[in-house]
Design a protein around this nucleic acid. Structure first.
Lengths: 475, 475
DNA sequence: CGATTTGTATGTCAACATTTA
DNA sequence: GTAAATGTTGACATACAAATC
C-alpha cells in the first residue's frame, strides 16, 4: 500500500504539524476541537484514518487514538471500528417537552402527554387540601423519604399493581426520571453495564450517558426481551443491572407476558443483576399482571410513577427497593433531592384515598382504547405482543432515512413524530420505525386529522411499492 | 536495592498471582476492590508501593498504576505522590433531617431548619392559588426549565441579591441539593476535581463522593478561601471547578467580603474554573453585596435556593448559568428532573410578587439577630469574619474527640450538635469544632435552655484549663 | 468468505513531579 | 538541600475486533 495515499486522495483534515506541542495528543485534540467548533469540519464528514493521520504527523497511531478519544468523549466525533471516524452532527436524542408541533402548526404526535384532560379532578383535590388545617405541616423539611402516611398510600397504590412490599422499602421521589437518576447514582458506578431492550426509553439512554454507564442492548421478540439473549449477553459482558418497562415498552409498546416475566426473573437471579423496573404504564396493562420485581424481591428497584397515570404536574413517583439497597437508596435520595415536596405527595395521596385515582385511570383507559381503535383505521399494529391500550404506537418504515431529515419533513407535512434512531441503543440500524403518540392531541378529531396527514406523508415518501400499511382504510 | 525487600518488610496487600487473568490491570483492580469491600484491607491502611507490587506480581509498573487508577476513580483508594497509596476510609458524613433530638428529649441544635414559623404566610398563598382559575395550567408536563412567568420571578429575585442575568440563563430546580446534583452531573466527569473550603457543606461532600468527583480543600482565613492558596492548588492539581457558599459558609459561618470575592474571581478566571456558587444564605448577608458570579459571568453557576429564605417545603431553587453551560444544563435538568412542579414554583412566584417574600426575610433576619445575641451570652463568635446573622455558629473545642462519642454524649446531655469532622474535606484534623444550629429550636426560651445545657456539658468535658469560651457569662 | 481497512485495548518504557528523610 | 521513595504522564508497539468489499 502506498504510504503517500493522502497525496492521491487528499485527507479531509490536515492539521498543521508545526502547531503540535507537548503533550502531542492533547494538542491534536485541541486543534480538532477548534476546527469542528468553528465549522471548518462539516457534520458527518469522515476524518482521515488514524493510521494515515499518524503517518502524516509523524506520531504513533496510539497518540492519534488518544487525541480522538478526547474529542469523542466531548461528543464532537464518533468512531466505528472498520468504518472510520466522523464528525458528530449536532443531535442529541433526549426528547424535550417543547411544543415543536406548535411552531409548524403541526399536530403533536411526538411527545407523550398523559391525557391531561383529567387534571380538572386533580385541581379539585388541590383546592380541598388547601382548605385543610394541617396544610402547614406539609411545608417543612423533615421526612426525606416521605411522610409515613404518604408512604402507606404508596404501598396501597403499589399493591393495586401487584407489588407488595413493606413501607420501609418505599420512598417518594420527584417523578420517575428523578427515581431513575437516583437509582443509577446510588447503585451503579461509572463503567458499569446495564442490559436494556434494543429500543428503549431515550431519557434513560441519556441519563446513562451522563453517568457514564454503559447500556448493553438485548434482542427481544413479540413478548419482549429474550431470556436466552439476556443470559448470553450477561455471560459475555459482566453486566450489573437490567432496565425494563414491562407493561408497555417505550417506544415499541411491547407488553411482557407472565411467563416471559418469570423467565427473565430467573436470568436476573442467575447473574445477580439489579433489576430496575419502570412500571409507569402498569395502569394500561391487564389487571392482575405481576411485576417482574415480584419474582426477584431481593434484587429489585420498582418505580411506579404517577405522572402518566394520575397527574404529570405533581411530579410524584413511588420507588420500592429490596432490603439490600435500603441504605444506599436512602443516601441517594437525600443527596439528590433532600426530599420531595409533601404538598405534592399529599395531593396524590388524596387522589388515591378518595378513589378519584381509580376513576382517572378508568377514564384514561377508555380514551386510550378509542384512540387506538382510530389508529387502526389507518395503520395496523406492528407486533402481536403490543399493549392495545398504549399511548403510542410503533410503525415500521420501508427504507432508511436520516433522523433529522425525516422528522423535519414530517413536521412540515403537519405531524410531529419521532424516528426510531432516538430510541436505539445499538450502533447498527437495519430496520427503521417511527413512534406515534396518541395521547398528546387535544381530541379524537385532531388525532384523526393527524393520522390522515401522516398516512398521506408516508405514501408520498415511501415510494417503494412495499408499503408500510398494506391495509390502509381511508377514513 | 534488594529485589526481595517485600520479604523483609511484608507487604500490606499480597494479591494471589495465580488469580491474575488478562487484562491484568483490570484483574488487579477487581482483586483490590474485593478485598477493600470485604474488609480485608482496613481503612487508611497503606498499600505497597506500586513498584514493589509490580515486582511481586511480575508486571510492569504502569500496569499497577492503571489498576490503582480504576480503584481511585471509584473512591476506594487515594494516592499521594511521594507518600504512597491508601485505602479510603468510608465515612459517610451526610446529615439526615431526622429528629435525633426528640428521641433523647434533647434540644435540636444540630440540623438547620429555616425558622419554619413563617410558613403560615406560605400556607395562605397556597390557599389563594388554589382558588385561581388558572390552576389547571400549572399541572401539565411542559416547560422543563420552568414557565416563563416563573423564570421572570426568579430573575427578579436574583436581582435583589445582586445577580443580574437573562431569563434564558435561568431555570427552576427542585431545591438547592437537586441543583447541585444536576450541575455536577452535567458539567463534571468522574475523577474531576473541585476546590472547596477546608470545612464545607457535608451534603456537597457526599454528592461528590457518589459521583466520584474529588474535592480539593483550600485553606482560608477570616474572609474565606485564600486566593493565593486557590491559585497554588489549581496550579498543582488540574482543578476544574470551585464550590463556594460565600454569604455564610456552612459550617464556619464565614462571610466573604467584596474584595475577597474579586480576588477569588480573578483566580477563577486565571485557571478557567467553573464556579458553583451556592448563595442559599444571601438573605442573611448585608444588602448590596455582589455575588462572586457577578465577577465571572462567563463561568458561573449561581444557585439561589428558596428553602432557607422562604419555604423549605416547596423545594424550589433558582439556578443561573453562563451561556456556555446552557445546553448541558438544559439536558441535565431534563434528564434528572424532567421538570419541577409548576404548582410549587407558582407558590414561590406569588410570594415574591406579593412582597410577602420580603416580609418573611425581614422577619427571619430579626429572629436570627435575637438568637445570635442570646448565643453571645454564652459563647463568643470564633472569627471576626463570621456572618452575625448566621443560622448556626462555629465553636472550637480544646482537645480531640471522636465524632460519634462526642455527639452521642452531647445528645445524652440534652443537646444535639454536629462535630466538625462531618464537614472536613481534608484527611488531617488538627483542631476540632462543633456547629451549633440556632434556627431549629421552637423559640428563644428553648434556645436559651439548649445553650445552657451545652455550656454545662462543655465545661464538664473540656477539662483542660484552656476553656473554649473564656468569657462565659452565665445567664 | 476471506482479505483489507480501520478503530480499540493492553502492556511497556522512560521521563517527570512531589513528598519525605 | 540533596537524595531517595513514590506516584503520574506521555508516547509507543503489538495484538485484537469489527466493518467492508
Amino acid at each position: 500500500m502506498p504510504v503517500n495515499s493522502f497525496e492521491n486522495y487528499p485527507m479531509s483534515w490536515t492539521p498543521d504539524k508545526k502547531k503540535l506541542a507537548s503533550p502531542i495528543y492533547r494538542s491534536i485534540a485541541s486543534l480538532l476541537e477548534y476546527d469542528i467548533i468553528n465549522g471548518y469540519l462539516a457534520p458527518n464528514i469522515q476524518l482521515p484514518p488514524q493510521r494515515e493521520l499518524a503517518d502524516y504527523l509523524d506520531v504513533n497511531l496510539s497518540t492519534i487514538t488518544r487525541a480522538f478519544k478526547i474529542c469523542e468523549v466531548k461528543g464532537l466525533i464518533y468512531a466505528v471500528t472498520g468504518r472510520g471516524t466522523f464528525v458528530t452532527p449536532n443531535v442529541r436524542n433526549a426528547i424535550f417537552l417543547e411544543d415543536h408541533a406548535e411552531k409548524f402548526h403541526s399536530i403533536e404526535m411526538g411527545i407523550i402527554q398523559p391525557l391531561d384532560e383529567c387534571n380538572t379532578q386533580v385541581a379539585e383535590i388541590i383546592r380541598q387540601i388547601s382548605g385543610k388545617d394541617y396544610l402547614e405541616t406539609l411545608l417543612d423539611y423533615r421526612q426525606p423519604l416521605g411522610m409515613p402516611y404518604h408512604r402507606s398510600a404508596a404501598r396501597a397504590w403499589m399493591q393495586r399493581f401487584g407489588m407488595d412490599v413493606d413501607v420501609e422499602n418505599i420512598a417518594i421521589t420527584s417523578g420517575a426520571q428523578n427515581a431513575l437518576a437516583l437509582t443509577l447514582m446510588s447503585l451503579f458506578h461509572p463503567g458499569d453495564k446495564i442490559a436494556v431492550d434494543v429500543y428503549t426509553y431515550p431519557n434513560f439512554i441519556e441519563l446513562a450517558n451522563i453517568l457514564n454507564i454503559q447500556l448493553v442492548p438485548v434482542e427481544g421478540d413479540t413478548s419482549g426481551m429474550l431470556p436466552e439473549n439476556l443470559d448470553s449477553v450477561c455471560t459475555m459482558n459482566s453486566v450489573q443491572g437490567i432496565y425494563l418497562v414491562p407493561s408497555c415498552n417505550n417506544p415499541t409498546a411491547i407488553m411482557m407476558g407472565t411467563n416471559r416475566r418469570k423467565d427473565i426473573a430467573e436470568i436476573i437471579n442467575k447473574h445477580k443483576l439489579i433489576l430496575i423496573e419502570d412500571d409507569i404504564y402498569s395502569f394500561l396493562a391487564p389487571p392482575g399482571e405481576l411485576p417482574v420485581s415480584h419474582f426477584v424481591p431481593d434484587r429489585c428497584i420498582y418505580i411506579l410513577s404517577t405522572s402518566k397515570s394520575l397527574s404529570s404536574g405533581m411530579r410524584v413517583a413511588y420507588i420500592a427497593y429490596a432490603n439490600q439497597f435500603i441504605e444506599k437508596m436512602t443516601y441517594g435520595i437525600f443527596n439528590v433531592n433532600i426530599k420531595t415536596s409533601a404538598l405534592n405527595s399529599e395531593v396524590i395521596t388524596e387522589l388515591i384515598h378518595s378513589n378519584i385515582a381509580d376513576q382517572i385511570i378508568r377514564q384514561k383507559r377508555t380514551i386510550a382504547r378509542e384512540r387506538n381503535k382510530l389508529y387502526q383505521n389507518y395503520f395496523r399494529f406492528y407486533d402481536s405482543g403490543e399493549n392495545p391500550l398504549s399511548f403510542f404506537r410503533w410503525l415500521p418504515l420501508s427504507r432508511q432515512y436520516s433522523l433529522q431529515e425525516f422528522e423535519q419533513s414530517a413536521l412540515k407535512a403537519g405531524v410531529h413524530v419521532y424516528h426510531s434512531l432516538r430510541f436505539l441503543t445499538r450502533k447498527q440500524t437495519e430496520s427503521q420505525f417511527i413512534r406515534i403518540s396518541l395521547s398528546s392531541v387535544h381530541d379524537t378529531e385532531e388525532l384523526n386529522q393527524g393520522l390522515q396527514r401522516l398516512q398521506y406523508f408516508l405514501l408520498s415518501r415511501e415510494h417503494t411499492n412495499h408499503l408500510i400499511a398494506p391495509e390502509i382504510t381511508p377514513s
